[in-house]
Design a protein around this nucleic acid. Structure first.
Lengths: 332, 332
DNA sequence: TTGTAGGCGTTATCAC
DNA sequence: GTGATAACGCCTACAA
């Protein structure tokens, strides 16, 4: 390519890198030749020379077909693209044993940073990598055995607020249906549920405080909870999957039990179901921003240098979206 | 690293590349040193040396927060991961003008192949790249101005089948609500709708054959369609966004108008809404497989060499998921 | 303003 | 079975 333009490789490099000290005439002829030869600078070679500094970041997600993670990924992609970086996406299929392999594959691609939804019980294996200069930010859940930035929801506060709203609406027998006792988010949401009950001098009825883990049995658990004689007058779900199961269990007859879902979901508004909502895409954007801060890529409204601040935990706020479902015909 | 193991760089290369002609003893000491030093082979350097052959493929999608595209992406990722490849994901935000830039960014990363949901009106700009050896497969829609493999739904057939089912249920005034006249999928679905009506000697009533494009006005369009005096007795939607708008327009009073949605969606079963369903993840898997075929990566059940077959169009089947909504109280 | 030398980590080639 | 050498395409450093 360089020879085709009648200049040295270095001059081509200068042109494509946008360096200033090139004669306009030279620049033009180089650009012309580049166009003719379909020349595209090789970012791989550049990364190699500059010491493995790539423009890709890795995002390890559990299951992309979950709308929540998809929305987070959309936010990540968007924020990265704004800074000329791209997202290498890998999924663990929610298999804890797969996490390390998947992370390894991304690191072998020399990603410049790592975003991770932790699935494995322990992330200490990342410590060495972190020290070698690859920043790690966890999303949705904090890491275990690793000090890292994390972007998480106000799980407990959101659940507390929702539960309190149900209590204020007159409910006394409120149930919680979580999906997985091994997930810290589900635990925190139940904690918020319990503390709100306790604050009102109440407690969950036996069998009305469920945390799973349910794999395929979620629909059945919802049916059991809502079909019995002693069914609760209100339910708070642990996530959008649980919300879907509750709707399936109740059919379209949503007026008999008050429902608040954790996670907003499509049609929740049409069905009049109250939800604990938040901006999932913003979560992704904030996580990406955390990583970019560590990499020294300034934000648009750049003020201070954030590459060396101590590990941060960014709390993403939730808001209770009040819809018809807060009350119900069986309200006492 | 090589020196630490007391061998040459080439021997390390042989070990990590899994070549056979290495003494077991040597191999062990190399692996031991690699473990101790946190050694990770640099795929960038490898790609450089081997001529730009990377293990990443690029997937250009419109909007990841659409559950359909997210599911396709999940399928792509999964199939690629099975063969040790990773997915570089970029989004056009459904902006036709952004497509070329986004594709360019992926090509600069030297992706080995390209999966693309076409958004721009023309993809001929990819022809040179294709000839240079980067295979291109389009997903959901065929390319314009470019001969490439594509994986698409049986849009017309699916819509035809759904419409016929509504006719068979006794409906005569059936409406179609599509979201975008500039999308070939929406056009094909309406074509299927119209041909089914024609086959029965019917035609859509004025204003009951809508194709958009609606950006923010989709909810309003659904309300207008379903609120009037001359509202149809049945509706076929063009996609999941239109289905959501229809449900919002009808509220939970879904019994007054029969609805069939194109695209399955969460809770469609709970709401008793019939849908034209298909396996979106399988679509992604098939698209990835097309690309891998072109790259000479054999399938598990490898039979023939598919790298050089003429461009294929893979049709992904749809199936009508019959639920309560096929009939309605206003059925004639 | 432009060019030359050298090397990033890997692998192909050809020796030993 | 193993190693020395060169080269992939680019950039840093230093000349010219």
């Amino acid at each position: 390519m360089a020879r085709a333009a009648g200049v040295s490789a270095k001059t081509v490099s200068r042109v494509v890198s946008g360096e200033s000290n090139v004669a306009p005439a030279t620049r033009d002829s180089v650009l012309e030749a580049a166009l003719a030869l379909q020349f595209r600078p090789n970012r791989l070679a550049r990364s190699l020379r500059t010491g493995g500094v790539t423009t890709t970041i890795g995002f390890v997600v559990g299951d992309l077909s979950n709308p929540f993670y998809a929305a987070v990924a959309a936010g990540v992609e968007r924020e990265l693209a704004r800074h000329g970086m791209t997202m290498l996406l890998a999924a663990t299929e929610d298999d804890p044993a797969a996490e390390r392999t998947v992370v390894g594959a991304l690191l072998a691609e020399r990603v410049r940073g790592l975003l991770l939804v932790p699935t494995a019980p322990d992330q200490s294996y990342l410590e060495a990598e972190q020290r070698l200069g690859t920043p790690v930010v966890t999303v949705d859940r904090p890491a275990h055995g690793l000090v890292a930035d994390s972007v998480v929801l106000e799980d407990a506060r959101g659940a507390h607020e929702a539960t309190t709203a149900l209590i204020d609406a007159g409910h006394r027998d409120i149930a919680f249906l979580g999906t997985s006792g091994t997930r810290s988010t589900q635990q925190h949401r139940r904690d918020g549920f319990r503390s709100a009950l306790a604050d009102a001098g109440l407690a969950a009825q036996p069998g009305h405080d469920l945390l799973g883990p349910y794999d395929d049995g979620l629909d059945a658990a919802a049916r059991d909870l809502l079909a019995g004689q002693d069914r609760p007058t209100a339910v708070l779900t642990g996530d959008n999957r649980a919300s879907a199961s509750v709707v399936r269990a109740l059919g379209t007859d949503l007026s008999t039990v008050a429902v608040v879902g954790f996670d907003d979901f499509e049609l929740a508004d049409a069905l009049g179901i109250s939800v604990v909502a938040y901006d999932a895409a913003a979560m992704g954007r904030q996580a990406a921003r955390c990583l970019l801060d560590r990499l020294g890529v300034p934000a648009d409204d750049a003020e201070t240098e954030l590459a060396d601040v101590p590990p941060r935990t960014v709390l993403v706020p939730t808001r209770l979206e009040r819809r018809g479902s807060l009350a119900s015909t069986s309200t006492p």
